[in-house]
Structure formats: C-alpha cells, structure tokens
Measured scan of single mutants.
Amino acid sequence: SSQSQGISSSSTSTMPNSSQSSHSSSGTLSSLETVSTQELYSIPEDQEPEDQEPEEPTPAPWARLWALQDGFANLECVNDNYWFGRDKSCEYCFDEPLLKRTDKYRTYSKKHFRIFREVGPKNSYIAYIEDHSGNGTFVNTELVGKGKRRPLNNNSEIALSLSRNKVFVFFDLTVDDQSVYPKALRDEYIMSKTLGSGACGEVKLAFERKTCKKVAIKIISKRKFAIGSAREADPALNVETEIEILKKLNHPCIIKIKNFFDAEDYYIVLELMEGGELFDKVVGNKRLKEATCKLYFYQMLLAVQYLHENGIIHRDLKPENVLLSSQEEDCLIKITDFGHSKILGETSLMRTLCGTPTYLAPEVLVSVGTAGYNRAVDCWSLGVILFICLSGYPPFSEHRTQVSLKDQITSGKYNFIPEVWAEVSEKALDLVKKLLVVDPKARFTTEEALRHPWLQDEDMKRKFQDLLSEENESTALPQVLAQPSTSRKRPREGEAEGAETTKRPAVCAAVL
C-alpha cells in the first residue's frame, strides 16, 4: 500500500463515540455579560531565545476518518491537505487489492476528492471536503458537486459515486458533537469551532446549510445566566432586550441578528466578523496607526449616533465590543453586545450600574441610586476607546495605585505619557480631550465629534464608502454560481449515467 503517514491498516477498528472529540476555545468574540476587562498594560515583551531549542513535538491529529468498508483504511489527519483517489500521487490511494476487485472500484476517479483545513476566524481551523469526481462525492447523502466544497462537521458520513455507498465517517477532533444542539438549529446550521467564551456562554462559528455562508452563533446558558443575574427581577429580559434591539436596528456599522432560537439555552445567530475584536488588534499591534484609528472611530461614531437617534444607549462600549470585518488594516467595524443597552424612556434617566469599570463615565460612578444619566455615557466610553487606539494603553487603570480607579475617572485625570502622545496629531488629542470631559453637559456629542476637524478627511470617508460598496456587492452575490457537472467518465454501479447527480441539489457548496 502507498498510504501516507497516519493511515492504519485495519478497517475493522472499533469506532469511538463522539464524546472523545476535544474542545477548543479562544478569547471572547462577544459576550452578553460584562466580565473583568482584559488588561492592556500587560503586553508581554519578546522573550530571549533559549540556548537549546526544544524538540519539535509530534503533531496531534486534528481529524480521524473511520473506514466503513473492507479495502479502505482508517486515517489520522495530521497534515493540512489529503487527496483521495486511484492515482498513485494521492496521499490516500485507493490501491488495496481487496478494493480493486470490487465492482465499485471502476466508478472512483483518479482524484476523487480531497479533505483539507484552512485558517478561519480567531486563527481556528475549518475542515472542508472538495469534490473532484465525475460520479460524485456525497456528505450525509447530499451531493457536494464537482469543483465545489463544503465544510465537514463531526460525524459526517462520506459516500463515493452513490449516496448509499458510504466509505468513511469523519471525526473532527477539535469540535463538539452536533447532537448536543437543538434540532431546529441543526436543521438550518452546521455548528463548528468555538470563537470565544464568557461567564454565561460562548460564541460558535457555524455555516448556513442552504448557502454555506459563515455566521456566529452566540449561545447563552439559561442556567448560568439565571445564577449570574439572580438580582434582576427577570434575567430573561436581558436576552430578550438584546434580541428586540438587534432586530430593529439596520446600520452597516451595527451587528445584524439573523436568527434566534429559544431552547434549553438561547441561541442568537449573528453575522460573522472575520477580523475578531478591536481589543485583540490593539494588543497585537501595541497601538494602531492614526489613519486606521480615524477610519475605525468614524464608523463607531456613525453607529452610536444611529443608536442615540433611535433612543438607544449602549452602556457597555469597549474594544471587546467592536468587531472587525476582516484581518486587513482597512476594514469595516461593527458594534455588538447589546445586553446592557437601554431604550430611552421619557425621563432619559437610568440608575442601574452596569458596564465595565474602566470605560464607565464619571456620572455613572457618582450617581448610583441618587440620580440618572443619559446618552453622554456612550460618548465618554468612545473617548476611552479612542485614547486606547491612539496610545496603546488605557487612560484609567486600577494599577495606578496612588489613585483609585473611581477617583481617576470622576476627576477626569487620565494617565498622559508625553513621549507616547508625541507621535499623535494635535487634532486627534483634542478630540480625545473633548470626549473625556467629566461634566456630561459639556462633553462632545456624537454629532459634535463628527464635525471635529480631525474627522474632516475626505480620503478616509471615501475609503469607508468603498468598503461599504464591497460589502454590499459580496452579500448580494449568490453563493453557488454554477451547477454541478453531469458529465460521466465512468458508469455508476447499477444505474444510468447522471441518474442521481442531477436530482440532488449541491447543498452548502461554494464554487472555488
């Protein structure tokens, strides 16, 4: 046999249950609850290399294929790409003598399909299967379609040439079993990697079954959420508030809700932002270029202005709740996480202390139980975000031990490091100062900020419009641009040419 590394010779191994799959997660993409704000000051410096380099560890398999027929071997997927077919160049070659004697062998292509993985959001991997055969590759009886790919989820059954000719079961060793999710959700989405997690739940990458488009699904544990919100009269209202707010909003710089499922837990389906959180971008770069800050901040102002015009105060604006559309420097941003939002009543007064301390406005800290506050709290938070983006460190921090965090904020005395700000323009610093004003009545509004000289930049605004146009074009394009080929190089076993392929839609398939 010419099988590559990772293939075992026996096809009769006992199949494990899916609970053996491991679970991976990374930083929070968007969480309903406010958790302790991640610290920006503690960015690790590059460490000196050791005298002796450690040995390379043996790579762990990321997936496993269990053979369902004699003549096929099990495969431990270690590499990122595997070709399957009769050709000797394939990493998994159909060359077992037992297999060659079967009637089905002649229906398999020289290069029938490939399984591979690509880097997705949060640097996690996504597994795909890609059909290159004349007679078809099927996943859970659905045709992939020649020249098309679809994501592979845990426990997928792979069939060759005929939908009933099941050859492998695919085990993704990095994700959960699909069966743990409600059927209504599974009918519409293929669940994938964990993108982030918080005290009350997690955010998962998923794929729409009909279109193969990526989405983010925010899962909120009702049990954990009820415990964490025990002081509230009705904890469920917080989730329902977020859903109702998101459904009503329609702005290019605000995250869109696509679906909602109320089962044992809450499942909020949101558009996916491939670039992750602004927080991670700031930490990764230490600070952002001023031109990049301007492009992002302009969009934040437009989003918050839209919220305020619609009578909504976000109340928890922070870099973790600003998501980026891509890994590119120039990209769209979207505001997310409306769990603490407040729809303005007639009095415009709110007395609930919520939000993240580092970003809270002075009037929030001094008015607990005594007075109210209004939309100006969001403008203060925007000032803190702009400060961080321009400088790479927070204006107020618990680690300045000589003054408490509350006193720093209520006095408006931010930590100004001259040598850092020497590289920032006077106009940018002036806008920061106009937003970090203790008196909410004297603080800049979103309208005033948008009129500030720093943002009178036609090149930046043109760039934003171009990015918007690109997004609109990409969302308007159909996901499947061509029909699967019906040509046949070899006959199917026991049926006429093209008899099955043309009847089945290529579900969740995307043209390369």
Rank of each mutant, 00 (worst) to 15 (best):
I245W: 07
K248E: 07
K248Q: 07
K248H: 09
N250Q: 09
H251I: 01
P252C: 06
K256P: 06
K256S: 04
I257S: 04
N259D: 05
F260M: 05
F260T: 12
D262F: 04
E264S: 09
L270H: 01
L272V: 08
M273G: 06
E274W: 11
E277A: 04
F279P: 02
D280Q: 04
V282I: 11
N285H: 14
N285V: 08
E290G: 08
T292D: 10
Y296R: 04
Y296E: 03
Y296C: 12
Q299G: 05
M300I: 15
L302H: 08
A303G: 06
V304Y: 01
L307S: 14
H308L: 02
H308R: 08
H308A: 13
E309M: 00
N310I: 15
K318Q: 07
V322R: 05
L323H: 03
L323K: 11
L323T: 01
S325P: 11
Q327H: 11
D330V: 10
D330K: 03
C331T: 03
I333A: 05
K334L: 06
D337P: 06
F338P: 02
G345I: 11
E346L: 04
T347N: 09
R351F: 07
R351Y: 03
L353V: 10
C354Y: 02
G355W: 03
T356N: 00
L360M: 06
A361H: 06
E363W: 10
V364I: 10
V366N: 04
V366K: 04
T370R: 09
A371M: 08
G372C: 03
Y373S: 02
Y373Q: 02
N374E: 08
A376R: 10
V377Y: 01
D378H: 00
C379V: 08
W380F: 02
S397D: 10
V403W: 03
S404P: 03
Q408Y: 08
I409Y: 01
Y414Q: 05
N415C: 08
P418H: 08
W421M: 03
W421S: 04
W421L: 08
W421R: 04
K427T: 08
V432S: 03
K433L: 12
K441S: 15
F444Y: 13
T446W: 14
E447T: 12
L450C: 14
L455H: 09
D457A: 14
E458F: 14
R462I: 03
K463T: 14
S469P: 03
E471F: 08
T475W: 00
T475R: 08
A476C: 13
L481Q: 12
Q483N: 08
S487I: 11
R488M: 10
K489T: 00
R490Q: 14
R492L: 12
G498V: 05
E500S: 14
K503A: 00
K503L: 09
R504V: 03
R504C: 10
